[in-house]
Simulated scan of single mutants.
Amino acid sequence: MAKALVGYIGGPTADQARQTAVLRRRVADLEAEVMRLKVENDGLLVALRERMDQVTASDLAEPVAH
């Protein structure tokens, strides 16, 4: 029944197999990019926390030079 819903009987064509491989590779690339961004974000959060620990009330009262 599932094969009838997909619209073919006998398995995927060579083109469908290539498309599936391309899509699987793209998903893997995107998952790797998400992981890289998570690691980068975690590092930025650590740096921000360290910086926030160094900020004093007088630092907040000083005007920022542009």
Score class of each variant (00 low, 15 high):
residue 45 L to Y: 05
residue 13 T to F: 02
residue 62 E to Y: 06
residue 38 K to Q: 14
residue 50 E to W: 08
residue 25 R to E: 00
residue 66 H to V: 12
residue 10 G to C: 02
residue 6 V to E: 14
residue 8 Y to P: 00
residue 39 V to G: 09
residue 46 V to T: 06
residue 28 A to M: 03
residue 31 E to W: 09
residue 49 R to D: 15
residue 36 R to E: 11
residue 15 D to V: 00
residue 51 R to S: 08
residue 10 G to I: 01
residue 66 H to F: 13
residue 51 R to L: 02
residue 23 L to G: 05
residue 62 E to N: 11
residue 54 Q to T: 07
residue 24 R to L: 04
residue 64 V to P: 09
residue 30 L to N: 05
residue 33 E to T: 13
residue 29 D to M: 08
residue 12 P to A: 15
residue 63 P to G: 07
residue 25 R to W: 01
residue 64 V to T: 14
residue 55 V to F: 00
residue 25 R to D: 00
residue 47 A to V: 05
residue 59 D to Y: 02
residue 56 T to C: 04
residue 48 L to C: 07
residue 2 A to E: 15
residue 4 A to M: 11
residue 24 R to P: 00
residue 18 R to T: 10
residue 66 H to K: 12
residue 59 D to K: 02
residue 18 R to L: 11
residue 53 D to K: 00
residue 33 E to K: 10
residue 21 A to I: 03
residue 63 P to S: 08
residue 23 L to S: 09
residue 56 T to G: 11
residue 10 G to Q: 01
residue 31 E to K: 04
residue 48 L to Q: 04
residue 63 P to T: 06
residue 2 A to F: 11
residue 53 D to L: 03
residue 16 Q to V: 01
residue 21 A to Y: 09
residue 59 D to R: 01
residue 28 A to K: 02
residue 36 R to Q: 12
residue 31 E to I: 01
residue 33 E to N: 11
residue 31 E to V: 02
residue 58 S to Q: 13
residue 20 T to E: 14
residue 37 L to D: 06
residue 19 Q to V: 06
residue 31 E to N: 08
residue 28 A to C: 03
residue 60 L to M: 08
residue 2 A to D: 14
residue 33 E to Y: 05
residue 49 R to P: 01
